[in-house]
């Protein structure tokens, strides 16, 4: 706090020089203004109010109405009825449960695979063509989910998909990955894990990079077994970045909408319909704006909870760094 307070009148204006005289009136006014910090915040506050605060209030309002866009009758005020409906319906618990198991499996899969491969790539410093290899490795996470969802339908296709070519070669059987009730969920997770394992590799590499060299050298000299090195040297130092990675991935997987929309459209049945997609269908396919708004408010609360956890983890590192 104290470090950042400037004298209200900037030194420049206190000692007028040839320079200050040539200055534009606007710049002079800014130099003398006590509200300079607030003026800088002007644009972001406009954006924040118009695109966040107003829509949020709108959403809150609509969530108390029974409002179907395509219906002729005007919106009808129903109080907390939409929320009560959501609370009572069994579908919502199925939906949340499905989203949760998707999150756990995809984050878990990407984390385990990413950590193993991250360790593998640890010593890649002198690898020939490293930059190109890493580009290829990291490609999946920067692709448009829409494109990924689309082309995996081709790869998973029961008749001419290459995935079936391999399963037939290996176990002599063909599957309808995205059309079968038992396989669609797993197939969606596999694609998501493929997309996001590179991110966890990246985070693992960053975590390994944050381990002090001296401690690793000491372990090398002491011939400490690898499991102990991981347990006592790598984990305590790299834990924070790994945790951040897992958390970011958890938040992101909660948001998954485009990928299942293009790949399976939530089907078969509702096996791959997660919160984001369900919300989309309630709002923009069934046009039940009231129900969709209540659901949106619930997801918003979940998101705020995630953001708080994220900030807690960040501040945890800061306080720990101060102690050392």
């Amino acid at each position: 706090m104290a470090q950042t307070t400037y004298p209200a009148e900037a030194p420049a204006s206190a000692t007028p020089s040839a320079q200050t005289k040539r200055r534009l009136p606007l710049a002079r006014a800014l130099d003398e203004s006590r509200f300079f910090p607030t003026i800088l915040l002007g644009p972001i506050l406009v954006f924040f109010i118009v695109w966040n605060v107003v829509p949020l209030l709108w959403l809150l309002g609509v969530s108390f109405y029974r409002y179907k866009v395509t219906a002729a009758r005007p919106p009808q005020f129903v109080g907390f009825q939409n929320f009560l409906d959501i609370w009572k319906s069994t579908e919502i618990w199925g939906l949340l449960g499905r989203t949760l198991s998707f999150m756990v499996l995809t984050v878990g899969g990407a984390t385990i695979l990413g950590m193993v491969l991250g360790f593998l790539f640890w010593g890649s410093g002198r690898m020939p063509g490293r930059r190109l290899a890493l580009t290829l490795l990291f490609t999946p996470m920067v692709l448009p989910p829409v494109a990924v969802g689309t082309f995996f339908r081709l790869i998973y296709d029961p008749i001419f998909g290459i995935a079936n070519f391999f399963t037939e070669k290996l176990i002599g059987q063909r599957f309808d990955f995205l059309g079968s009730k038992d396989l669609a969920f797993g197939a969606t997770i596999a694609v998501d894990v493929w997309m996001w394992t590179p991110f966890m590799i990246l985070m693992t590499l960053a975590a390994l990079g944050s381990v002090p060299k001296a401690e690793l050298e000491a372990a090398e000299i002491d011939r400490l077994p690898w499991l102990k090195r991981i347990r006592y040297i790598i984990l305590p130092n790299g834990k924070f970045i790994l945790m951040l990675g897992i958390l970011l991935r958890t938040i992101d997987s909660f948001k998954t909408t485009d990928l299942p929309y293009l790949m399976t459209n939530g089907g078969p049945g509702n096996k791959t319909e997660f919160v984001g997609l369900s919300l989309y269908r309630t709002g923009f396919e069934a046009f039940q704006m009231g129900d969709a708004s209540s659901l949106a408010i619930i997801t918003l609360l979940i998101a705020i909870a995630f953001a708080s956890i994220y900030l807690y983890v960040l501040s945890y590192r800061e306080t720990r760094a101060q102690l050392q």
Binding site: N52, I251, F254, K255, T256, T257, D258, V275, G276, L277, L279, Y280, G283, F284, L295, A296, T299, L300, A303, I304, F306, A307, Y310
Partner: peptide
């Protein structure tokens, strides 16, 4: 706001 699903 960046942690909310796009549809919400």
């Amino acid at each position: 706001t960046r942690m909310v699903p796009a549809s919400a």
